[in-house]
Structure formats: structure tokens, C-alpha cells
Amino acid sequence: MTTLTDLIPEPATPRSIASVPVFGVPWPVNKLAAVVAGVLAAVLTFVITASGVAAMWVSAVVVLAVWWGGFRLLAVRWDDGGRDFIAENRPRR
């Protein structure tokens, strides 16, 4: 006799990332670092080049790189539940 067993994986868990209180509101560390790095990059670029356009582009690139880089480095891997369960427990050939 064959039975069908439905394996129900645990629900997905959200990322947990370190946070810092900014005016009483918890901000992720990577977001705060991105804002600070963007302001510093804009000021330095404007002082060196005296161009607002260059300062804007440089600060945008720096903010994006720091924000996503910090997110990838500091965040815990997202557990997507079923897909990961199936991938980890698939039969080996």
C-alpha cells in the first residue's frame, strides 16, 4: 500500500538585522551607514570638483553600494520555506 505524505515546511522567517535608534525610530545599520557615506561622498566630491551634478551621481552610487553591500553582509539569509526545504531534502542521485 502506498501513502501520500504531505510535508509542510515551517513558515518563512524574516531577516533580522542590527538596528540603531535614530530619534527613537530603529534604523538598520546599513541604512544609517549609507546615509552617512552618501553625505560624505557628496561633500568631498563637491569640494573637489565644484560640480553639483558630479556630487549627486557619486553620492547616489556610494549610497547604493553601501546600502546593498551592508544588507548582503549584515542580514541573515532569508528562509523561503518550501523551496529551500525541497532543495535541501531532494533525493540524491
Rank of each mutant, 00 (worst) to 15 (best):
T5K: 07
A87E: 14
E88I: 05
L7R: 11
G24D: 09
A34S: 15
W67T: 02
L64N: 12
R83T: 08
S19M: 06
G70L: 08
T3D: 15
S59P: 04
A60N: 14
A37E: 08
A54G: 01
A33M: 13
V25W: 03
L7W: 10
P26N: 11
A34H: 01
A12E: 10
L44D: 03
W57C: 09
F71H: 10
W78R: 12
G52K: 03
A75R: 01
M1F: 12
L4Y: 09
S16T: 10
S59C: 09
G69W: 10
A50Q: 11
N89R: 15
M56N: 11
G38Y: 00
T49E: 15
W78V: 10
D6Q: 05
P26W: 05
P14R: 06
W57E: 06
V25N: 13
F46C: 12
I48M: 07
T5P: 00
P28T: 09
I48N: 13
A12K: 06
T45I: 03
W78S: 09
V76P: 00
V22E: 12
T13D: 10
G70E: 10
L73S: 07
I17P: 00
F85G: 02
F85P: 00
N89M: 06
E88M: 10
W67V: 00
W78T: 04
V66E: 04
P21Q: 13
W68L: 13
F85C: 08
V47N: 09
G69I: 04
D84N: 08
F23S: 14
L74N: 10
V35E: 06
A42P: 00
L32H: 05
W78Q: 15
W57D: 03
G69D: 05
R93F: 06
P14H: 05
R72D: 04
P14Y: 07
A18L: 08
W57N: 12
V61T: 12
V36Y: 06
W67M: 12
G69A: 04
V53H: 11
A12Q: 11
V29M: 09
D80S: 12
A41W: 00
A87G: 03
T5S: 09
K31Q: 12
S59M: 08
R72C: 10
P26Q: 13
P91F: 11
L4K: 13
W68A: 03
T3W: 06
L40M: 14
V20K: 01
K31D: 09
K31V: 13
V22L: 13
I48A: 14
E10Y: 11
W27G: 00
A33L: 15
V76F: 06
R92M: 07
I86S: 08
T5E: 08
I8A: 12
F85S: 02
P9C: 07
S19K: 03
V66G: 01
P28F: 02
T3E: 15
A33P: 00
V39L: 15
S19I: 00
V61W: 05
D6H: 03
A18E: 13
G70W: 03
D80P: 02
V35Y: 00
I8V: 15
S51E: 11
D80I: 03
R92W: 07
V66Q: 02
W57A: 14
V62Y: 02
V39D: 11
M56G: 14
V53K: 07
V61D: 06
L73A: 14
R15D: 09
V47C: 03
A12G: 11
A87K: 13
M56R: 05
V35M: 07
V39C: 13
G52P: 02
A55Y: 01
A54W: 07
V58D: 02
V36M: 12
A33V: 02
V63Q: 01
